[in-house]
């Protein structure tokens, strides 16, 4: 597929990315989300935040393995959808879980490690979403922008820990996310190591004229 074909792929992928939300709204209206619909919505929006985070983190390895360029054109959108579902997830926590009990929330964030991690994962996404535009990328400069956007790794790790520490006993699902994340980050570590071996100098000194790799 050439780069221009992305123009045709992007709109359907955009719409498909809204499908989880559409299904939740439909489920809520039709009362088919089970006995505890708010819990179901909380869980689903959390799942989809992680799904989109991992998808956006899969783009770089995919490009390096296949040498396709087109997936890069989707990365920003996938990352922004992760932020979108994270916002929904967080809004539901504030509204339908805590009912705007600010004191309770501060306590939660400071004292409950799984909420600390979730909050951290969310907060770290904010600067990334704000600087996701081409204009901001230019204003920051490629290298600084890249360094800033490495925060996505921290956010993803915090997001997965948030899930691992939430679960009472059955770790299968959170550990699946952890394993996929480990592969995606491990791939980068290996590539970085190899590059360093080849160039014989630390990565910070590399000139970065190439497109941003995250």
């Amino acid at each position: 597929m050439n780069l221009r074909a992305v123009h045709y792929y992007k709109p359907p992928i955009f719409i498909a990315s809204l499908l989880p939300l559409a299904l939740l709204v439909q489920g809520y209206v039709q009362d088919s989300l089970g006995a505890n619909p708010i819990e179901a919505i909380t869980r689903e929006t959390g799942d989809w935040t992680l799904n989109f985070l991992l998808l956006s983190l899969a783009i770089t390895p995919l490009r390096q393995i296949t040498h396709w360029q087109w997936p890069m054109r989707l990365r920003r959108m996938l990352g922004l959808f992760a932020f979108f579902y994270a916002c929904l997830h967080f809004a539901i926590y504030i509204w339908l879980d805590q009912f705007f009990d600010w004191k309770g929330m501060v306590y939660d964030i400071l004292d409950r490690p799984f909420i600390t991690m979730g909050f951290l994962a969310f907060v770290l996404l904010i600067p990334l979403a704000l600087t996701s535009t081409r204009g901001m990328m230019q204003r920051l400069g490629g290298q600084r922008w890249q360094r800033l956007h490495k925060l996505i790794y921290v956010s993803a790790i915090a997001g997965v820990l948030h899930y691992v520490w939430l679960v009472k006993a059955d770790l299968q699902e959170p550990l699946t996310y952890a394993a996929i994340l480990a592969v995606l980050l491990g791939f980068r570590a290996v590539m970085q190591y190899r590059k360093r071996q080849l160039s014989g100098q630390p990565p910070a000194n590399r000139a970065s004229a190439r497109p941003p790799a995250g």
Binding site: A35, N36, I38, E39, L96, D97, F99, G104, Y107, D108, R112, P113, F114, W165, L166
Partner: peptide
């Protein structure tokens, strides 16, 4: 509970806690 407050509860079928 070590990971969440027990001050409130959601009665199944109710919106508010």
């Amino acid at each position: 509970h070590k990971r969440w407050s027990q001050k409130r509860e959601r009665r199944i079928g109710e919106f508010r806690k």
